[in-house]
């Protein structure tokens, strides 16, 4: 009984984790059809913001929910202004340039803070079920992810911003001809994606710690989730995270986290053989 409960909780945590760290990437991919290779570094910057602010006495939740998204969103704005906006319409060049940006960010953070691991303690204590225990903080992350997804859905479904976003995703030329400013939409998308990544990076920093190159360790999971999910931002991320997070959670329990990642990749490769445009190309097509 304990065993089943813990496996279920562990799976929920691993699914929520995937949703959380992939959300920013999914927003940018869904709107711009570009994979942002600097995604891992946006997560890393969010983590650094949280760690440094907390070490200077800022409450953890303030640095996670306010400082990190704002700061990383600003970094996203700068990157968009200096690099990305010159390359619109050239998908591959955009990806290559974002790879360059990722290396630059790793380099700058290494120069500023050194190549060492730092971290903050995980708050909230832990919940024990029989012989097992799970951190309350991880359950808190599940709740935050849930709120984030619901908020995202409501924004996309009912707000004007969401309407413009859906129109652009469906047919960008038609949206443009109806008076939607494409450049403004792309800029807002990139900044939103960066801010979401900053938030996620800050939230997982207490669990994972931070080091300049930590982005690479999230990258594989995020990329797999987003391309398996396909173009629909919310439905795609949720369905891919559900599937892959389930596989990953069970494999982590049965074997090791690294083998779970290998299984994730194998699952995604087979999935893409069957559904080359991701899950949402065939199912949930009318979703966001």
């Amino acid at each position: 009984m304990d065993y089943v409960a813990i496996i279920l909780l562990q799976t929920a945590i691993s699914i929520a984790n995937l949703v959380l760290i992939s959300a920013g990437l999914a927003v940018i991919f869904g709107m711009m059809r570009v994979i942002n290779f600097a995604h891992g570094e946006f997560l890393m910057l969010g983590g650094y913001t949280a760690v440094i602010a907390t070490q200077h006495g800022v409450p953890l939740l303030v640095s996670c929910f306010i400082l990190a998204p704002v700061l990383v969103g600003l970094v996203g704005l700068v990157v968009e202004y200096l690099v990305i906006r010159h390359l619109y319409g050239r998908l591959l060049d955009t990806m290559l340039a974002s790879w360059g940006v990722s290396l630059i960010l790793i380099g700058l953070v290494t120069v500023a803070f050194g190549n060492s691991v730092s971290g903050i303690s995980t708050p909230f204590g832990s919940l024990s079920i029989g012989r097992f225990s799970i951190g309350f903080y991880e359950l808190f992350l599940v709740a935050v992810t849930l709120v984030m997804v619901i908020a995202g859905y409501l924004v996309m479904r009912y707000s004007r911003v969401g309407l413009i976003a859906r129109a652009t995703m469906q047919d960008r030329d038609m949206a443009a001809s109806l008076g939607v400013n494409q450049r403004a939409v792309y800029r807002a998308t990139f900044v939103t994606g960066a801010a979401l990544s900053g938030l996620a990076g800050a939230l997982i920093a207490p669990i994972a710690g931070v080091v300049p190159t930590i982005g690479a360790s999230y990258l594989a999971k995020c990329f797999i989730t987003v391309i398996s999910g396909g173009p629909a931002i919310i439905a795609g991320t949720l369905s891919a995270s559900g599937l892959l997070g389930g596989v990953g959670g069970i494999m982590t329990f049965l074997a090791t986290p690294v083998l779970a990642e290998v299984a994730l990749l194998a699952a995604a490769v087979v999935l893409l053989r069957v559904l080359p445009q991701g899950i949402t190309s065939k199912f949930f097509r009318r979703s966001q």
Binding site: G100, V101, I104, L105, G107, L108
Partner: peptide
Amino acid sequence: DPNLVMGLVLTLFV
């Protein structure tokens, strides 16, 4: 920093 140099080269060339 090697990453910084490589990133600048890549971004500038693109």
